[in-house]
């Protein structure tokens, strides 16, 4: 039973990793951009949701919000932050220098954003955890001895909905086809009449949305938020993305769930301190043995870095 309980917890933690890993896989698969702002934006959305519920908007524009409105506010902030990143990492950058590090410019820029977001929040709200109180927190289901809380069920359902609507978007819609054509070959996409400048923000909006939803799931599920959650939780989604295979939606799902399970299992078997070394060690082994991941293909990440 205890094992089954760990599996249930792992799957639900995995749902958060899946959502963030999807954001990573979209930007790296389509833009070949390892976007390090994703974990801080995930943190930013949860922290602003907490702040909105606790204090409301600054300068007395709006008083403390109900938790649902606060979460929506957090998601909007995440999308806006992601669009800001797009402005300053992609829109005004043109590749001007023919050397091996030019492709790293957006990556380096995203590290700059990481510092700004993380330290801004740290200064504003400190490093200690804050409680995010929802009425859902106390509701739970008992299924044959396993204890599953209602937010866990909801977040899993939400993650599944996101996954399916995202794969629908990419497969069936005009925008989706345009996005995939950029992933195949940006120059050809431009020649074929895809308005790359128009379509790139869509990826960042999706990224922000996914980070915001992941932040909401985290806040509701664990009932607390803290400024280090981007580092501690968000970064592990990178491991999930790589294990599954960069640029693959199914890879992000399987990889994210796998990391969730590995994490809860290693806590269960070896204790909480071992999680970091187990997860990242697994990623290192995967990078040595099978860098393209479970579902990845060779084309991704081939550009010089």
């Amino acid at each position: 039973m205890l094992i089954l309980q760990q599996v249930a917890n792992g799957v639900l933690l995995g749902a958060i990793y899946v959502t963030i890993a999807l954001a990573f896989t979209l930007t790296i698969g389509i833009l070949n951009f390892l976007n390090f702002t994703i974990p801080p934006i995930f943190m930013l959305s949860a922290m602003t949701a907490w702040a909105a519920a606790q204090f409301g908007l600054p300068f007395g524009i709006f008083g403390p919000m109900p938790w649902t409105v606060a979460l929506a506010f957090g998601i909007v902030v995440a999308i806006l932050a992601s669009l800001l990143v797009e402005r300053l990492t992609f829109r005004y950058l043109k590749v001007r220098y023919g050397d091996a590090t030019e492709h790293a410019i957006p990556l380096v820029s995203s590290l700059g954003f990481l510092l700004v977001f993380q330290n801004g929040i740290r200064m504003a709200y400190g490093t200690e955890p804050h409680r995010f109180i929802t009425p859902l927190g106390d509701m739970s289901l008992h299924l044959g001895g396993i204890f599953i809380s209602l937010p866990q069920v909801l977040s899993l359902a939400l993650a599944l909905i996101i996954v399916f609507s995202l794969s629908y978007l990419l497969k069936r819609t005009r925008t989706g086809r345009a996005l995939r054509s950029i992933a195949e070959n940006p120059d050809a996409a431009l020649l074929m009449g895809v308005d790359v400048a128009r379509i790139v923000p869509v990826i960042f909006i999706l990224t922000g949305l996914l980070c915001g939803i992941a932040g909401s799931i985290f806040a509701v599920n664990y009932g607390q938020v803290y400024s280090g959650m981007g580092d501690e939780v968000g970064n592990k989604a990178i491991a999930g993305m790589v294990l599954g295979g960069m640029g693959s939606i199914w890879g992000a799902i399987v990889g994210g769930l796998l990391i969730g399970l590995v994490e809860t299992m290693s806590i269960y078997l070896f204790g909480g301190d071992t999680v970091q070394s187990v997860v990242w060690g697994l990623l290192l082994v995967a990078l040595v043995l099978r860098p393209e991941g479970l579902f990845g293909h060779h084309g991704i990440g081939k550009g010089k870095f």
Binding site: V275, G281, G301, F305
Partner: peptide, 25 residues
């Protein structure tokens, strides 16, 4: 070194996380 580009960046990052995780234990 078999892996290039973004994989190398990820590998160095993973190594850093892994090593600090090990040292703590």
């Amino acid at each position: 070194m078999r892996t290039k580009s973004v994989y190398l960046v990820l590998a160095t990052f993973a190594f850093g996380q892994f090593l600090t995780g090990v040292i703590i234990n």
